[in-house]
Nucleic acid binder design. Structure first.
Length: 562
RNA sequence: GGGCAGCUAGCUCAGGGGUAGAGCAUCUGACUUUUAAUCAGAUGGUCGCGGGUUCGAAUCCCGCGCUGCUCACCA
């Protein structure tokens, strides 16, 4: 089946190198893995981690990177399978500090994490707990892979022949691994590990293999020995460096990225690559290295041993899903970057909004920039909307005069200010935008989503100098000079009589005039007004601010100065 | 010890054989204008160092330096 190649750029009709890293990776996959057809119905893109603790935002980079490449492949017309392997048959090595029931978990060290109880007592296992936490939030950002659970596959005997191959090629594997080791693997080393039936722990010693399916081991703690059948046992697994290449072949993986800790000579990708070829007769998938991400403005690390874990849910409190995708789509995977919770948040939202305007032609930039920003924007959309946009783009390509109007934008900074004025009342804050239409349900949802992020950020992370709370008139009045008092009263009367007649700028001008007319220092008078209204020296531009607060609440505060 | 990245304007980075770029910062100007304000303009660079290839190198090649990361135990 020949894949239909559709143009992915924003200016159809021109053949050129893709500008976006995801499209470039997709092109590499197609070039290196060969065309689809015959026994290759699709390209398989793989991601996966060990659910040994809360999945943090650093782990998320891998998932979203694969998702973006999958999107790129599908946009180019190629059938693509996106799998996510949970290595939940891995051994439980360390108790994370952010988990309850530390003693209980401690007692299960060296067990397969799939057999460790859920410390929250709700789900079937510790592994399942961590899996569900991630799986339940990924659809929010439009990521919906096919989940594979290693435990099930191991215990169902699905990997039995892969395990047997490893046993048969034991010497080859040992030689390959030894190439990068400082100390050679011992003579009695086996390329498998076995959990003890008697203690559940992996503290066992392999004592023999019958050359077929029978594997014998001794439990180090209890001293018991037994022989198990690889095909039916629920105790045998491959160690990571062998499990990985075995799975590549098993799932016919064409693409899988890996963290920088794996991409190094002698690192796990390097050895897995060799084992894939020499033991499993399979060419390692196309890959790239992704760098770490850090956290800024939240004082903590992504995942510290003290237990403060930053995961996708925490990021989504402040960033709407499209903006989260935008962060990852807009940064090449091999570049380290920080997810900010400080003032950068405003800039990130502004960048995203600008990309949106560029995409819809509402802001002009040079061709190259327009292409990159447009593709960043497109990849940032959730699947349903992305499909709509691409369909619309195809129409635009054939009808030169067909323009698509971009959505109404609600600037993050303004939203924060409105929310502070309304003390977090989202509906009231949004109604202050002239072009907000609550009857447009799609727009309403988007606006509410962003408003929740804006309020979360304002209350939880914004610097103190950014925040304010409107007074309500019950406070002790601010001490004023006679001239200042006269000016405040004059402004109060002006507001009382004809606030509606002003726009932002004319009201701002009027404030200056009133200060001057009453003999108050013009600049200082602004400070006076901010002290009166919000108890601070500075604030949002006064003209717009006064109009936004509104007559009623202004009078409530200013009447105390009459 | 091996590997990988980075080194470009004061800062953060883009560019990857054909006139050295952006944003921020700085300076100047504008709006009687207060939430990193906005707008207009300007200043600012031996593209880490040395060699090579080329008509031409920030870009390709070789060597070196510094910085960071990573592997060699487990995943």
């Amino acid at each position: 089946m020949a894949a239909e190649q559709t143009d992915t750029s924003s200016s159809p009709g021109r053949h050129q190198e893709p500008v976006h890293w995801a499209d470039q990776t997709a092109a590499r996959i197609v070039a290196q893995r060969g065309p689809l057809g015959g026994d290759k119905p699709h390209y398989t893109c793989a991601s996966g981690i060990t659910p040994s603790g809360t999945v943090h935002i650093g782990n998320f980079r891998e998932i979203v990177s694969v998702d973006l490449v999958v999107r790129a492949l599908r946009d180019a017309g190629y059938a693509t399978r996106f799998i996510y392997s949970w290595d939940d048959f891995d051994v439980f090595r360390k108790v994370p500090k952010n988990m309850p029931k530390q003693e209980m978990l401690d007692a299960h060290l060296r067990w397969p994490i799939t057999d460790v109880p859920d410390p929250f007592g709700e789900l079937g296992s510790y592994a399942e707990r961590n899996e569900r936490d991630l799986e339940s939030v990924l659809p929010t950002v439009g990521v919906t892979p096919e989940y594979l659970y290693q435990t099930r596959k191991y215990r169902a005997g699905e990997y039995a022949s892969g395990i047997r191959t490893a046993l048969e090629r034991r010497d080859v594997i040992r030689r390959l691994l030894d190439e990068h080791r400082t100390t050679s693997l011992p003579d009695d080393w086996w390329p498998v590990s076995v959990f003890s039936r008697f203690t559940h722990k992996d503290t066992t010693t392999i004592t023999g293999w019958d050359g077929e399916w029978g594997l014998s081991y001794r439990c180090d703690e209890s001293g018991n020995e037994e022989t198990v059948d690889i095909r039916t046992s629920d105790l045998v697994k491959l160690p990571w460096r062998i499990d990985w290449p075995m799975r590549w072949r098993h799932e016919q993986v064409d693409f899988e990225p890996a963290g920088k800790e794996h991409h190094s000579a002698g690192g796990s990708f390097d050895t897995a690559k060799t084992i894939a070829r020499e033991v499993y007769g399979y060419d390692a998938p196309v890959t790239f290295k992704y760098d770490f991400i850090s956290i800024k403005g939240r004082g903590g690390k992504i995942s510290s041993s003290t237990g403060d874990v930053i995961g996708l849910p925490e990021v989504l409190e402040v960033y709407e899903p499209e903006v989260v995708r935008y962060l990852f789509a807009g940064t090449r995977p091999n570049t380290e970057f920080a997810i900010s919770f400080d003032l950068d948040v405003i800039k990130i939202y502004e960048d995203y909004d600008r990309a949106e305007r560029i995409y819809f032609g509402a802001e002009q930039v040079n061709e190259k920039r327009a292409q990159k920003e447009s593709r960043d924007y497109e990849l940032s959309q959730l699947p349903e909307r992305a499909a709509l946009l691409r369909a619309a783009a195809r129409v635009r390509a054939t009808k030169a005069d067909a323009r698509l109007r971009g959505p109404v934008q609600f600037p993050f900074r303004t939203l924060c200010n409105f929310l502070m004025i309304t003390a977090g009342d989202i509906g009231a804050a949004l109604s202050r935008f002239d072009d907000y239409d609550p009857n447009d349900l799609g727009q309403r949802d988007r606006a509410h989503r962003r408003a929740r992020c804006a309020w979360n950020w304002t209350t939880g992370f914004a610097p103190e100098e950014f925040r304010f709370a409107l007074k309500d008139g019950s406070e002790e009045p601010v001490a004023l000079s006679p001239a200042e008092r006269a000016a405040v009263v004059a402004l109060r009367d002006e507001i009382d009589r004809k606030l509606d007649e002003y726009d932002d700028k004319s009201l701002q001008d009027r404030v200056y005039a009133i200060a001057r007319e009453n003999g108050a220092d013009e600049k200082a008078f602004f400070g006076v007004m901010y002290r009166i209204l919000i108890g601070k020296e500075r604030g949002p531009r006064l003209g717009g601010f006064l109009r936004t607060v509104g007559r009623e609440r202004l009078l409530q505060i200013l009447d105390g100065y009459r």
